[in-house]
Amino acid sequence: MLAFVLRRLASAVPTLFIVVTISFFLMRFAPGGPFNLERPLPPATMENLMRAYQLDQPLWRQYLTYMSNALTGDFGPSYIYKDNSVAELIGKGLPYSMELGFYALLLALVGGVIVGTIAALRQNSALDFAVMSVATVGVTVPNFVVGPVLTLIFAITLAWLPAGGWGDGSLRFLILPMIALALPQLAVFARLTRGSMIEALRTDHIRTARAYGLPAKSVVVVHAMRGAMLPIVSYLAPCAAALLTGSAVVETIFTIPGVGRYFVLGAINRDYTLVMGTVVLIAIFVIVFNLLVDILYGLLDPRVRHD
């Protein structure tokens, strides 16, 4: 197992390297730069800025500098938030995004699996149809609609919950953004669970369990559920990575001080280093969660033991 983890970590290095390289050059070859404002700066100022941020260097040197700095955890200064380095910005924002994302993930996973299982066990009933219709709406309604609607109902009309902000970080502040963040994923989990549950209930070994008089509960929970979890576990990796690194939409609507906004802000302002920092952050999350999910998969399914 340890060897497997080490091997996977080692193979993550070139992946990360390629991701960073692609992003770096993609951005530099695009027209415009961080200081091409609507009102052009005086040439002298421009030159000074370019020199200060080493943007006057040849591209390959900038790349080498960036890479060697990145290895030491230095992702450079942000061009827009002039007083902060990218690492600081991410360091400040990430805990908020991760906390919110964690609750949303939990809600989406638990809720989705329960809903999907109920639908699968009552396949083709009215309940199944109703539950899955709601789930489908969940997938199709974008969270920038859900967010404002939730705010209107629960924060403004009913005034039960705060409309936004982090406040003291208590649950009251988290509920609405958490729901907005979790809802689409909950719906995906529900659909996945229903599909794989129905498939699992049709397998030969479920027939064996029934033929041996095992009670329905044990057939479903012990035998069908575990098999049905495998596709869900696979989806967990991209989903967790997406939720934990923050959502630009939800963080904007509910004014959460997380990292989700940075990428969009960075991109719009052509803040190279901030965008790169976010790319690296997300890539690391994706890679780490893929690894975790592979390990989990191995624990669930003895056929893919890693050794």
Binding site: L26, A30, T278, V279, V286
Partner: peptide, 16 residues
């Protein structure tokens, strides 16, 4: 797959 693609779209649209 490990590239944050949605964000790439954002970058490309912003830049081009």
């Amino acid at each position: 797959y490990s590239l944050p693609f949605v964000f790439l779209v954002v970058v490309l649209v912003v830049f081009f």
